[in-house]
Write a protein that binds this DNA or RNA. Structure first.
Ligand code: FES
Ligand code: FES
Lengths: 141, 141
DNA sequence: ATAAACCTGACTAAAATAGTCAAGTATCTT
DNA sequence: AAGATACTTGACTATTTTAGTCAGGTTTAT
């Protein structure tokens, strides 16, 4: 199981944004430079974040992005959902002969993976962007 | 983040094995049929499980595999480790200019991913094969 | 002997990921 | 009005990983 870059970048970028958007919108170029993430890739990611109303865009010179909610109200699971970083542990193939078909037949481990999925998602639901920013400021990164 | 088939199959197969190895070794062919997993793929997986001493093989006719430890002592993290299903959340690229280089420079989210990794691994360390078998018997699957 | 079952390594196809590239549009500054 | 900055979109590509196949063994009970 691994975390994809897309998910990781989304969180990195938003932590950056949360720290610097107090005065002016933050341009993706700045985030790109500070966090070492490809500008083009950031654009893809922010397009998704905007559609899910996690950030707001400001076009034109001096434009950029701003958080669309309080950092406290943005949880990790919201971010991941927005960028399609979903936790998927079950198989449950519609048309498998044996085992994982999800409906009538559940494989011997189905419940286990369900538990795991919840376990992970709980972690994401608890953490807010604000928590992350605070952590960072404390450690002076 | 998703669980790979290899990891899922390894656990499915071992749960099956744990239920049926009391009298005779269990052949991969039987597991393949019961769980709907490709025999060739199972062989790859069991080769790894054997090397990590989670199962023991019995060659020849009527051969098969047997658990090498008590089901209670086999934890999920042992299984995953054996089949290289590792949890990887950090990036920490050795040679990245900005951000994740892991040594001197840690990106703004490094600690978060570390926490996540621990969170997930704790789940794996707690669950034993015995727990899973019991669950299954209770639910009469 | 022979069949069942383990053993091994190489090979391949498909999917997902991590980007890149190109051609815009909107808005601020001068 | 011109130019620069920065958002917007969609298509395209390379790389990597995963999942699975295949072929050719060896061991051992009967
Ligand atoms: S994971 Fe859902 S039935 Fe196997
Ligand atoms: S994840 Fe370790 S430095 Fe970014």
């Amino acid at each position: 199981m691994k975390l994809t870059s897309r998910g990781r970048y989304a969180v990195m970028a938003l932590v950056d944004l949360a720290r610097f958007d107090n005065i002016n919108p933050v341009s993706l170029r700045d985030i790109s430079l500070r966090q070492g993430i490809s500008l083009d890739y950031l654009e893809q990611i922010f397009s998704k974040l905007r559609k899910k109303e996690i950030v707001q865009s400001v076009r034109g010179t001096q434009g950029g992005y701003v958080l669309n909610k309080k950092a406290k109200e943005i949880k990790l699971n919201n971010i991941f959902e927005a960028v399609d970083e979903k936790v998927k542990t079950v198989q449950c193939n519609k048309e498998s002969k044996k085992g994982c078909n999800g409906k009538s037949i559940k494989c011997v481990t189905h419940n286990l993976w369900d538990e795991l999925e919840n376990h992970i998602n709980n972690f994401f639901k608890e953490k807010s962007l604000e928590d992350l920013v605070k952590d960072n400021i404390e450690r002076r990164i």
